[in-house]
C-alpha cells in the first residue's frame, strides 16, 4: 500500500466531519477499495470513530471493502431489465467469468456486480462496464463484451 498517496488524500485541508464521504470516494477511486489503514487514518484526521466510518462505508454501495478488479462489470437488475432477462445475463456472466456476484476474477480483471436500476430502462437489459453502457443485451452479446476488455491489455 502506498502510504504517501493515502496521506495526500487525507492530509489535505479537509478536516470537517462533513468531508467524510468525499474522502472515502477519493480513497475508493485511488485504491479500488477502502483499506483498513485508510479508515484508521481518516478517523484520526476527522475525529470520527472508526466504527462510525465503517457504518458509513458499508451503507453505500459505492465503497468496497475488498480490492476490485481492473474493470467493474455491473448488470442492471431493475424491474425493466429484470423482466427482460437480467437474471439470466447475470448467471451467464457468472459462469463465463467463474465468479459470483460481488466477487473478483482470479486474474483481477473483472469484478461482477449488480445494481437495482440505473435509470435507462428503455434500453434494457443493460450492462455497464466501468463507465461504458451496453444496451439491449442478449446472451449472444456477452462474449464480445468480455473479450473486448480481456484483450484490452494495458
Amino acid at each position: 500500500m502506498n502510504n504517501e498517496k493515502l496521506e495526500k488524500i487525507i492530509d489535505s485541508s479537509r478536516t470537517d466531519q462533513k468531508e467524510l464521504i468525499h474522502i472515502l470516494h477519493d480513497v475508493q477511486s485511488e485504491y479500488g477499495y477502502i483499506p483498513p489503514e485508510a479508515v484508521t487514518a481518516i478517523s484520526r484526521r476527522l475525529k470520527v470513530s472508526e466504527s462510525e466510518i465503517f457504518g458509513v462505508l458499508t451503507f453505500y454501495n459505492a465503497f468496497s471493502l475488498t480490492p476490485k478488479g481492473e474493470h467493474v462489470m455491473t448488470v442492471c437488475m431493475g424491474t425493466a431489465c429484470h423482466v427482460r432477462g437480467g437474471p439470466q445475463i447475470v448467471e451467464d456472466i457468472e459462469r463465463k467469468l467463474d465468479v459470483k456476484v460481488g466477487e473478483t476474477t482470479a486474474d483481477n480483471k473483472f469484478t461482477l456486480e449488480t445494481v437495482n436500476c440505473i435509470g435507462c430502462c428503455a434500453i434494457g437489459p443493460v450492462v455497464v462496464v466501468d463507465e461504458k453502457y451496453y444496451s439491449n443485451i442478449t446472451l449472444n452479446k456477452i462474449d464480445p463484451i468480455i473479450n473486448e476488455y480481456k484483450e484490452d491489455k494495458s
Binding site: V48, S49, S51, E52, F54, G55, T58, F59
Partner: peptide, 10 residues
C-alpha cells in the same frame, strides 16, 4: 462519546 459501535451495512 465512545462510538465504539455503529449501524453497519444497510
Amino acid at each position: 462519546g465512545a462510538s465504539a459501535i455503529a449501524f453497519v451495512h444497510r
